[in-house]
């Protein structure tokens, strides 16, 4: 039986702007199972952040229902339980740090949940070890690098022991090193602790590392599947302003020139093997 942790059913959402109401979603449906590692891709304005904010009741549906672990986000009495299960990490690390010491910042969430102090201590230490920031527990957050700050933000969520973390472009403001730190941290969380991860991003290489990719455009889901099948939809992705990895672009262009090559080799090694096989065959 399927075990949907997040279930979006016929979601409608409308923004009010000075030019009148703007429809973002109309009857959008999506299910994310416990333990999944899902990327939500789309360009700015595609609705991906708006969707993310529905996952822990920051935004409430105008129509339809969003269920978290079977609880409707529209039920105000369940708000506490919903936010305990789904934690959010945002784009700008400087906007989500509240304390002057790393460990105090991480303790902020569990303190608000009323966790006993001995247990808070334990949760903070565990969370900081999980993201590899334990050695910095007594440092001032503002002196950390962007990647380190995002890992502290993730630890702050982990200390609340959520079942799911929704990250809204967590690497957009980071350099390549910081991006890699964050990607490794969330991949390990998913793999080793079974935390459900929803990663909102427009970096293709990050999406390629997830098990499932959901592509959004104008508030609609236009593709949903494993990266290997989604990224072969090169014309579709281009038509909505998304780029594909260079490996796929190479395979696509070569196919157009009459080469017999699979489109679904995403990483460098697979791609090089597939291309070289083309030539190995010819030598015989």
């Amino acid at each position: 039986m399927k075990d949907a942790l997040l279930r979006v059913e016929d979601l409608d959402f409308v923004y009010d702007s000075d030019r009148g109401p703007v429809k973002v979603f109309e009857s959008l449906s999506l299910e994310i199972d416990r333990g999944e590692f899902v990327a939500v891709l789309g360009h700015n304005g595609s609705g991906k952040s708006t969707l993310a904010k529905h996952f822990n009741a920051i935004l409430l549906p105008a129509g339809g229902t969003v269920y978290v672990d079977g609880m409707s986000t529209a039920d105000e009495e369940l708000l506490y339980e919903i936010r305990r299960r789904v934690g959010m990490v945002f784009q700008n690390p400087d906007n989500q740090i509240v304390a002057n010491i790393v460990e105090e910042d991480v303790a902020f969430g569990p303190e608000n949940l009323g966790v006993p102090s001995a247990e808070i201590r334990e949760r903070v230490n565990d969370a900081l070890r999980t993201v590899g920031m334990y050695g910095y527990r007594e440092h001032a957050p503002h002196r950390l690098s962007g990647g380190q700050k995002q890992r502290v933000a993730i630890a702050g969520i982990l200390a609340m022991k959520p079942e799911c973390i929704v990250l809204d472009e967590p690497t957009a403001m980071l350099d390549p090193t910081g991006r890699e730190e964050v990607m490794r941290t969330i991949s390990a969380l998913n793999r080793e602790s079974g935390v459900t991860i929803v990663l909102i991003t427009h970096h293709m290489d990050e999406a390629a590392r997830c098990a499932r990719v959901v592509v959004m455009d104008s508030g609609k889901i236009i593709a949903d599947g494993p990266p290997k099948s989604v990224f072969t939809e090169i014309e579709l992705l281009r038509s909505v302003g998304l780029a594909v990895p260079q490996t796929v672009e190479l395979a696509y262009s070569l196919r157009q020139k009459g080469f017999d090559l699979p489109l679904n080799c995403l990483d460098v090694e697979e791609c090089a093997q597939a291309v070289s096989a083309l030539f190995a065959g010819r030598k015989v």
Partner: peptide
């Protein structure tokens, strides 16, 4: 380095 450069480096190693 660009991903395409890494592919070409690897292709070279594979004898292309």
């Amino acid at each position: 380095v660009p991903q395409i450069t890494r592919v070409c480096m690897r292709l070279r190693e594979l004898g292309v």
